[in-house]
Design a protein around this nucleic acid. Structure first.
Length: 558
RNA sequence: UGGGGUGUCGCCAAGCGGCAAGGCACUGGGUUUUGAUCUCAGCAUUCGUAGGUUCGAAUCCUACCACCCCAGCCA
């Protein structure tokens, strides 16, 4: 077992290992990832994807992609397309074709008929409201429906009439006949087919009755030969029902359901309903807005598939519910990008430096490493000129010795370039610093000053004449509350009003403008950035900040 | 007051009767042309609580407490 296997170990691997050892697995392991196409996939789904595909990979089995499309009212083809793209972007490929629960509607219908013939299902005409009443409560048993004892013949005719569109939506349903006094409410004659006069994105108008999740999921698993059907904890109460159908229907296999705790992360929400609300209320620009915890959003934000996979591994798989610290996700992406992102320089709040002893008009190409400790990332050329921009925040007229940047009368090193001495400050009538006049030491390229005094600080810069303009979008957490969806309050009240700030007048080193969309960089001393997937161009460069660099100084200052 | 779950460091999470892994966060030292990275060190005498069994318990038993899920013709 490799080291990665050890960290990726979890109770499900233990169960499967045991199933293999004790001969319960006739063939190989088959899992499935079963999204409903009613929204984009989010980080919580990423955990499930990594788990299901990861398990299959680990045990040499396979993982299917099956859309759980039993509710045409909420589903769309656009989501189906986006979901497939997300899974593949994460680095996984499902075995065989894309599958749909709707592929099995005919079989499911036959199963329903079989249940009716066995006297284990009946058509019920109770209204939704009546059905709720008859169901009882958590503490009181339910009562039998007055339609419970219809004959199989009558039920068959009724069910067929339902299928033929002879009844209105809600008029009748097909129910499994189990036990109205079961302490588990899911067993109180659950509804297994309902009338929905809706066009389905896969089956068109072939059906006007659709099976419910409970009647669909386990049977679909059985049809596909899924061996381990892994879902989240809230389906635990459905397991007895899942098993009941498997036992009472002529299914070709006996899959087993296992549950794990879903992923929660603080300062965000992981619920399709809430994410959809953010989109519908125009709080974000869409499902793939870089602030969204969707896979597409994180991709646009600059996350890498590897970071997401590593994060899922770090978080682990267990049955106890918790809330993972956003810092863990941030660590995962910083860790990847630090190792792999080429370095570059970008000044976001420019202050002009005039180096009076540097020749006017001269442009000198300085070589700089693409990465401080990865020669394979090559070298880039930085044009150096008499006037350069630095961050306004990197200059002070006076400061204590803890300030390791440019101070009037003191020296600082320009990253990958020369050591500079700040000699004079030029201000406007309001007293704002307009520019700083400096002198440079020509002997300090790749060398310490001859006086042996090494400058304390190193700051980034961009040539004023050779640099390029760029737009940078700074993203912050979408919510300013650790648990935005806790309590009765409306989670939208906790949206961070400053989650996005657009900085138009940034200066980037010239070579950066030509990068391809989705190229990732570390802007030195600042953070990790990605060229926007859709809006970046060489003419108008646009970068999204994925995540800031860790900043112990900023922390100490605050 | 029904049923199903879960409780191990600030946050995840191993552990399955023999003397509490790891990661994140945090704190302190070192290296550094990124206040980054890297690196070294520190960080649960204690495992929801209370009893009990045992030479020995986070691991077994009992009771209690807390939190989560279930009353969609959603998944």
């Amino acid at each position: 077992m490799s080291e990665q296997d050890v960290t990726g170990n979890n109770f499900l691997r233990g169960i499967i290992r045991k199933d293999i050892e004790e001969g319960r697995l006739s063939g190989s392991l088959v899992t499935r990832f079963p999204p409903e196409p009613n929204g984009f996939l989010h980080i919580g789904h990423a955990k499930s994807i990594c788990l299901n595909f990861g398990l299959a990979e680990h045990f040499g089995g396979q993982c299917h992609l099956r859309f759980d499309d039993t509710n045409p009212a909420k589903e769309e083809q656009a989501y189906i397309d986006a979901i497939q793209e997300d899974i593949q972007w994460l680095g996984y490929q499902w075995a065989g074709p894309v599958r749909y629960a709707s592929d099995y509607f005919d079989t499911l219908y036959d199963y329903a008929v079989a249940l009716i013939n066995a006297g284990k299902a009946y058509v019920c005409e109770l209204s939704a409201e009546q059905a709720r009443e008859y169901r009882g409560t958590l503490t009181e048993p339910g009562r039998n429906s007055p339609f419970r004892e219809r004959s199989p013949e009558e039920n068959l005719a009724e069910f067929e009439a339902m299928r033929n569109g002879e009844y209105e939506e809600g008029a009748k349903v097909l129910r499994a006949k189990i036990d109205m006094s079961a302490p588990n409410i899911n067993l109180r004659d659950p509804i297994i087919y309902r009338i929905r006069k809706q066009t389905h994105h896969q089956t068109g108008d072939k059906w006007c009755i659709y099976p419910t999740y409970d009647f669909t999921h386990g049977q679909s698993d059985a049809i596909e030969g899924i061996t381990h059907s892994i879902c989240t904890l809230e389906f635990e109460d459905h397991r007895p029902l899942y098993e009941w159908f498997i036992e009472n229907l002529p299914v070709p296999a006996e899959p087993k359901q296992y549950e794990f705790a879903r992923l929660n992360i603080n300062y965000t929400v992981t619920s399709k309903r809430k994410l959809k609300a953010l989109v519908d209320e125009n709080i974000v620009a869409g499902w793939d807005d870089p602030r969204m915890p969707t896979i597409a959003g994180m991709r646009r934000r600059g996350f890498t598939p590897a970071a997401l996979r590593h994060f899922c591994e770090m978080v682990g798989v267990a049955r106890s519910e918790g809330i993972v610290d956003m810092a863990m996700l941030e660590h995962a992406i910083r860790d990847d990008l630090d190792k792999n992102a080429p370095r570059a320089m970008c000044v976001m709040d420019p202050l002009k430096l005039v180096i009076h002893n540097y020749p006017q008009g001269q442009v000198e190409q300085l070589g700089a490493p693409g990465h401080p400790n990865r020669d394979d990332l090559g070298e880039r050329q930085l044009p150096f000129t008499r006037e350069v921009y630095i961050e306004r925040d990197d200059f002070r007229e006076e400061a204590n010795k803890k300030f390791k940047r440019l101070v009037l009368g003191k020296k600082v090193r320009l990253r990958n370039a020369y050591v500079l001495l700040a000699e004079q400050v030029v201000k406007d009538e309001q007293g704002n610093i307009v520019e700083v006049h400096c002198s440079y030491d020509p002997d300090t390229l790749g060398a310490d000053p001859s006086d042996g005094v090494k400058p304390k600080g190193v700051i980034h810069w961009v040539s004023a004449s050779e640099g390029r303009r760029a737009t940078v979008r700074i993203y912050d957490r979408l919510f300013n509350h650790a648990s935005p969806d806790r309590g009765g309050e409306d989670f939208l009240e906790h949206v961070n009003p400053d989650s996005l700030s657009v900085v138009e007048d940034c200066w980037i080193e010239p070579g950066l403008a030509n990068c391809a969309p989705e190229s990732r960089f570390q802007f030195e001393r600042t953070g990790y950035f990605v060229a926007d997937r859709y809006e970046h161009s060489a003419e108008q460069p646009v970068f999204n900040r994925t995540i800031a660099l860790r900043d112990s100084w900023g922390k100490a200052e605050a």
